[in-house]
Computed example of a mutant assay.
Amino acid sequence: MGSNESLENLLRSGVLKAEPPDRKECEGLMRSALDRLKDAHTCTLSFSSRFDLAYNAAHALALTALRLSGYRSDKRYLVFQSLIHTTQSSKVQVRLFALCHERRNLAEYEGYMDEDDALLEQLLESTSRLLSDVQHRMN
């Protein structure tokens, strides 16, 4: 099944909405992602701040990729799952973002944050790769 067909199936099921890309919105999301990713590399910040910044940078990039493809979703997890269809992201990267989404939810809604430096480094690396991919698509 092709990427467009997969996204169209998600549209038909109601979990995605069709919406033409908005260049200004995408540029704003990219600025937000760039700022957050840069700040996430600040080692003097707490782990939870760095994780939150990196996670939100990844989400902004994933949402940009989805918007550039002509879709929108109000489900954060779906924005990440759609990366396999909107970018060159591998299944491994998508699983990493899904894990980070779960960790973010635990911190946000249950107050539990497991400080995992290796996971943060993987998140930073995968987000940087995603940034390159999305920047290429913006041009």
Results as ranks from 00 to 15, higher is better:
residue 1 M to R: 04
residue 2 G to K: 11
residue 2 G to M: 11
residue 4 N to M: 12
residue 4 N to H: 14
residue 5 E to P: 00
residue 5 E to D: 01
residue 7 L to F: 13
residue 8 E to F: 04
residue 9 N to P: 05
residue 12 R to F: 14
residue 15 V to D: 14
residue 15 V to P: 15
residue 19 E to T: 09
residue 19 E to A: 08
residue 19 E to Q: 08
residue 21 P to K: 10
residue 22 D to H: 10
residue 24 K to A: 08
residue 25 E to F: 11
residue 26 C to E: 11
residue 26 C to R: 09
residue 27 E to I: 15
residue 28 G to I: 01
residue 29 L to A: 05
residue 33 A to N: 02
residue 33 A to K: 02
residue 34 L to P: 03
residue 35 D to V: 10
residue 35 D to C: 05
residue 36 R to P: 00
residue 36 R to S: 08
residue 36 R to T: 00
residue 36 R to D: 05
residue 38 K to R: 15
residue 39 D to S: 01
residue 41 H to S: 09
residue 41 H to V: 05
residue 42 T to G: 12
residue 42 T to W: 10
residue 45 L to Y: 09
residue 46 S to K: 12
residue 46 S to I: 09
residue 47 F to T: 01
residue 48 S to F: 12
residue 54 A to V: 00
residue 56 N to C: 08
residue 56 N to M: 02
residue 58 A to M: 02
residue 59 H to Y: 15
residue 61 L to R: 13
residue 62 A to E: 00
residue 62 A to K: 11
residue 63 L to T: 07
residue 63 L to V: 14
residue 65 A to H: 15
residue 66 L to H: 00
residue 66 L to E: 05
residue 67 R to A: 03
residue 67 R to Q: 06
residue 68 L to S: 10
residue 69 S to C: 13
residue 69 S to K: 07
residue 70 G to N: 10
residue 70 G to M: 04
residue 72 R to K: 13
residue 75 K to G: 04
residue 77 Y to W: 10
residue 78 L to A: 07
residue 78 L to Q: 00
residue 82 S to M: 01
residue 83 L to P: 08
residue 85 H to Y: 12
residue 86 T to I: 00
residue 88 Q to P: 06
residue 89 S to A: 15
residue 90 S to M: 13
residue 91 K to A: 13
residue 92 V to I: 09
residue 92 V to R: 02
residue 92 V to T: 15
residue 93 Q to H: 07
residue 94 V to L: 13
residue 94 V to C: 13
residue 94 V to P: 04
residue 97 F to S: 02
residue 100 C to A: 01
residue 102 E to C: 01
residue 104 R to K: 15
residue 104 R to Y: 15
residue 106 L to H: 06
residue 107 A to V: 01
residue 108 E to S: 14
residue 108 E to Y: 12
residue 109 Y to H: 03
residue 109 Y to L: 09
residue 110 E to Q: 05
residue 111 G to I: 01
residue 114 D to Q: 11
residue 117 D to M: 05
residue 118 A to C: 08
residue 119 L to K: 13
residue 120 L to G: 09
residue 120 L to Y: 04
residue 121 E to A: 07
residue 126 S to K: 11
residue 129 R to H: 07
residue 130 L to Q: 15
residue 131 L to Y: 07
residue 132 S to W: 08
residue 132 S to M: 00
residue 132 S to E: 11
residue 137 R to Q: 11
residue 138 M to I: 04
residue 138 M to F: 02
residue 139 N to R: 14
